[in-house]
């Protein structure tokens, strides 16, 4: 057998062993009284992500490809992609903090910053850049067309 094949099989077996150990631990941990809860949340996350979130993202990419992409150049398309992906990433990290900071807390040193304000400012900055990029790209196209 080739070394590559051996390595590949060993990696797969090692991975299966880690999964087995993790499952065993999850099922036998004294603190986890109902492992089905964990299974439910894990499956629920998968369904929400792949069943609802990703179709929405795909819809957004289709709209972008139909409505925006044909009107702007390659560079502007890349810049707009950067801004959109960054906005999504910041939302994933900042929105939970903003939501949580809005609830009463016993410990004032957890979440001491104005998270909602910071989040909205970051989104506004990204949106401003996006509008400027798109506007500039559309104008540049028109000017090039007239010449």
């Amino acid at each position: 057998m080739r070394a590559g094949t051996v390595l590949r099989a060993a990696t797969a077996l090692g991975g299966a062993a880690l999964i087995g150990y993790g499952l065993y631990g999850l099922l036998h941990d004294h603190y986890i009284t109902d492992p089905l809860d964990v299974l439910g949340w894990a499956a629920g996350g998968l369904v929400l992500h792949d069943g609802i979130w990703l179709p929405l993202v795909c819809l957004a990419t289709v709209l972008f490809a139909r409505l925006v992409a044909p009107r702007v150049g390659t560079l502007a398309r890349s810049v707009l992609t950067v801004l959109a992906v960054t906005a999504l990433a910041l939302t994933a990290v900042a929105l939970p903090a903003a939501l949580r900071a809005g609830t009463p807390r016993v410990n004032a040193t957890v979440l001491p910053l104005p998270y909602l304000r910071n989040y909205l400012l970051a989104l506004a900055a990204l949106a401003g850049l996006a509008v400027a990029t798109a506007g500039w790209a559309v104008l540049a196209r028109r000017r090039a067309g007239r010449r």
Binding site: R8, T11, A12, G15, A17, L18, G22, L23, G25
Partner: peptide, 19 residues
């Protein structure tokens, strides 16, 4: 505890996936 055991599952899944 859950975060700990899920870590093993995810890492094991990564190795199987890469293989």
């Amino acid at each position: 505890q859950t975060h700990f055991w899920l870590g093993w599952l995810a890492t094991g899944g990564l190795l199987v996936h890469v293989a």
